[in-house]
Design a protein around this nucleic acid. Structure first.
Lengths: 224, 224
DNA sequence: CCGCATCCTCATGGATACTG
DNA sequence: CAGTATCCATGAGGATGCGG
């Protein structure tokens, strides 16, 4: 408790550059993963802690304070306790994070190597990886992964996802994380995913959401 | 030299998620700033070192090795020595970095507080902040900042920038970093920038590149 | 000069335990 | 539930050395 002043966010790069300033705010370890969690909705401290296994509670506290002080997240004091939520400015990180996720998609194609998984992470990931997809009339479907349901809706405005929706879509694909992530990343076709999972409802709805022919924009030398 | 094996890139988040995997590769401190430097063209080690003042040389070496091992950058052994350049996959980070820069733009609007500046940083920043702008016929202009010339071309495909172009555009605005960065970030109008700088050539060319009415997509609570 | 490698110091991150 | 307190390992940052 010696000096808690000037505890903003680690060390600044000291550069007059928008990217460097952004990294001063969200570049520290765990910060963008906290934002990813909150992109699916507000969370309690212990929810964050359990979802971000590996982050110590003190570190999580530090990061939440930093992000709050910088206007990225806010503490909501409800009658049930403290909830953390993105501010409107924090929500605008979605575009950058979706772009980073698309860039990293080839890395998840190389398989899961004992990594942990949370269905909540699909909420920003699915729309990000399906960026540009539109459908009219809209397509509504769901993925059931490890007991959690993620709803995906594609309409004229593009794709959106939601965790634990109020009503269950009539078409749901139950599958394991490898299948759903691989499908979203383009490593699997919808036929692969349907074969590997347990489809419920109209398989043609799934085919509309994941038409064939999606390809990586450029070859990946290390993909072998 | 005890154990140099498994020195990939710091500590992995251990999450089966494209964003987390991406951050495993480029999330370490300085990594994205190295990529930003190389987005403007290949660089020598000492160029990187001087442009990224504050990064120790050993750390820079570590990061360059990591990025090379992960396929983001490559070492080019020319007759003049070693040059570092982005791979094609590394170049694809541009979209994510432009998005992060747009998100961080409000932070540079709050002014330069003794931060260092390099004209090279404008090369990814200007197109990122002008994203979506098109012009036909194309607009070509330049900014002269601290002795360096940055050319900006906007055509039907959008904006592109280049450091130290082969030929000097006929319209060039000489100004200080605050003016150019503020203009790009939307904090200044082109009239402000022209008044603060020394325009050479056709001011209407500048007006075409920076039409009035650019606004932030949402209010910034902390902007005061 | 260029391209690092070594050494040292201290701030930061991470794990465990504990408390209001 | 929501954090503190404490301790330790690691990584960042600065200075310097050194072969080519």
């Amino acid at each position: 408790m010696i000096d808690d002043v000037n505890r903003t966010a680690g060390r600044s790069y000291g550069q007059f550059c928008a990217l460097a300033r952004a990294l001063d705010v969200v570049g520290d370890r765990w910060n963008l993963l906290i934002v990813r969690e909150l992109l699916a909705g507000p969370m309690r401290f212990n929810e964050l802690k359990s979802s971000l296994a590996g982050a110590a509670s003190n570190l999580l506290t530090d990061r939440l304070r930093d992000l709050e002080g910088n206007g990225v997240i806010e503490r909501q004091l409800g009658d049930v306790g403290v909830r953390y939520a993105l501010t409107s400015w924090g929500t605008e990180l979605r575009e950058a994070m979706e772009a980073l996720g698309r860039w990293g998609a080839p890395l998840v194609m190389k398989g899961r190597h004992g990594d942990v998984f949370r269905a909540r992470w699909l909420v920003p990931a699915l729309p990000g990886l399906l960026r540009g997809a539109t459908a009219s009339p809209p397509v509504e479907l769901g993925f059931e992964v490890e007991g959690s349901l993620v709803a995906l809706r594609i309409d004229e405005d593009g794709p959106r996802a939601e965790i634990q929706p109020d009503e269950r879509p009539s078409t749901v694909l139950s599958a394991d994380p490898e299948t759903v992530v691989g499908l979203a990343a383009g490593a699997l076709t919808i036929e692969d995913a349907v074969a590997a999972g347990r489809p419920q409802g109209d398989v043609d709805v799934l085919r509309r959401a994941f038409p064939p022919g999606r390809r990586w924009p450029s070859p990946r030398p290390w993909a072998g």
